[in-house]
Simulated scan of single mutants.
Amino acid sequence: MNITRFEGAPEYFPPNHFSMRCVRLQGHEAGPAESLWLGVSTIEQGGYTTSGASPVEKHYVVLEGEVTVITESGEAVLMAFDSCRIAPGERRALHNRSSNPAKILLAMPFLHPEHSG
């Protein structure tokens, strides 16, 4: 068993993420994992990501607050415990347009098995 306490989760710095604090809960520098890694991003008021795509799918779950997810097919506001899947190659941007911080959980498979941490 590998336990990561939220207050001790290692921070990481993905490109094109602004006014956000990103930590890993499992996988990569947070410990061993075979198929996916988990992270939580705290998005400050006005925080966002630019539009980008990944070669693997992403799953998001809003833990607190509200997050606007924008894709080429439109946008949706996700509230606490709402979730969405972003398909491989689908461009997405995240925005916190609310007046409060938001927290969002990310679950994402590894690009290659050798990157399982």
Rank of each mutant, 00 (worst) to 15 (best):
N2M: 05
I3L: 12
I3K: 13
F6A: 12
E7Q: 15
A9Q: 03
P10W: 09
E11R: 08
F13K: 13
F13A: 09
P14L: 15
P15M: 12
P15A: 14
P15S: 15
N16A: 15
H17Q: 05
H17W: 04
F18K: 11
F18H: 14
S19Q: 14
M20R: 13
R21D: 12
C22N: 10
C22K: 04
C22D: 10
R24H: 04
R24S: 04
L25H: 08
Q26W: 15
Q26L: 15
G27V: 14
E29F: 03
E29Q: 06
E29M: 07
E29R: 02
A30G: 08
A33L: 06
E34V: 11
E34Y: 03
E34P: 03
V40Q: 04
S41N: 14
T42S: 07
T42H: 04
I43S: 08
Q45C: 14
G47N: 03
Y48E: 08
Y48W: 05
T49Y: 11
T50V: 05
T50N: 11
S51M: 04
S51L: 03
A53M: 06
A53W: 04
A53H: 04
A53E: 13
S54A: 03
S54R: 02
P55K: 00
P55F: 00
V56T: 08
V61W: 03
V62N: 00
V62L: 01
L63G: 02
E64K: 11
E64R: 11
E66H: 02
E66L: 02
E66Q: 04
V67M: 02
T68F: 00
T68Y: 00
V69W: 10
T71R: 07
E72I: 00
V77I: 13
S83E: 05
S83H: 08
R85G: 13
R85N: 11
P88E: 12
P88S: 09
E90S: 07
R91Q: 15
R91G: 14
R92P: 03
A93G: 04
L94K: 00
H95P: 00
H95G: 00
R97H: 06
R97D: 13
S98Q: 09
S98T: 12
S98L: 13
S98I: 14
S98G: 13
S99E: 08
S99M: 09
S99L: 11
N100K: 12
N100L: 12
P101R: 14
A102H: 01
I104M: 06
L105R: 01
A107Q: 02
M108T: 09
P109F: 01
F110D: 06
F110W: 07
L111M: 10
P113T: 09
P113V: 15
E114D: 13
S116K: 05
S116I: 10
S116Y: 03
S116E: 08
G117K: 06
G117E: 15
